[in-house]
Nucleic acid binder design. Structure first.
Length: 150
DNA sequence: GCCAACGTTGGC
DNA sequence: GCCAACGTTGGC
């Protein structure tokens, strides 16, 4: 992290869910949802680095394979109640709104500006960081207007 | 501590 | 349904 003016600004993320297990519709219905069940150390590290107010893309893996909405981190990492053992954590995410137009994985893979997106480079990781540039780019693709709203 | 076997995730 | 990527487990 640099000491540039935006070093303290909000961070951006992408979280994946299989719609069979937990879909965007359920997220919208619940409004605030504990993001539990992460059992991967890299993903856990990312969860632990999340700050209240950070934004995350909500991505449907397996079926859909597209970004369908935006959520905000409503509560920072705490012990995952669904974990029987181990140091696992979860965060609470709050619905911000749906992508006006879902951004598909195929579209992102075809986009040179997104060639080093962690979603693409590490396809099995369920919680990945998104750079501010990538965030803005993907928001443009999806017609998202609320980039800087809070 | 190495590495083969195996399990899981997730794209195609 | 298949397979690549990658994490975990267990024998040595």
């Amino acid at each position: 992290m640099s000491r540039e003016p935006d070093a303290l600004a909000r961070q951006y993320w992408l979280v994946k869910s299989e719609p069979d297990a937990f879909s965007w519709d359920e997220q919208v219905a619940n409004d605030v949802e504990p993001w539990t069940g992460v059992r991967n150390h890299q993903a856990k590290k990312n969860l632990a680095a999340m700050k209240k107010g950070d934004l995350a893309f909500f991505y449907h893996s397996n079926e859909g394979r597209e970004i369908v909405g935006v959520v905000e981190i409503a509560r920072e990492a705490y012990p995952d109640p669904s974990a029987e053992a181990g140091p696992w954590v979860c965060v609470d995410v709050k619905t911000v709104g749906p992508m006006p137009r879902a951004v598909t994985l195929a579209e992102m893979k075809a986009d040179e500006a997104l060639s080093d997106l962690a979603l693409i480079r590490q396809s099995r990781l369920s919680v990945v960081p998104v750079s501010h540039e990538h965030w803005t780019h993907i928001c443009a693709l999806g017609g998202w207007k609320g980039v800087v709203s809070r």
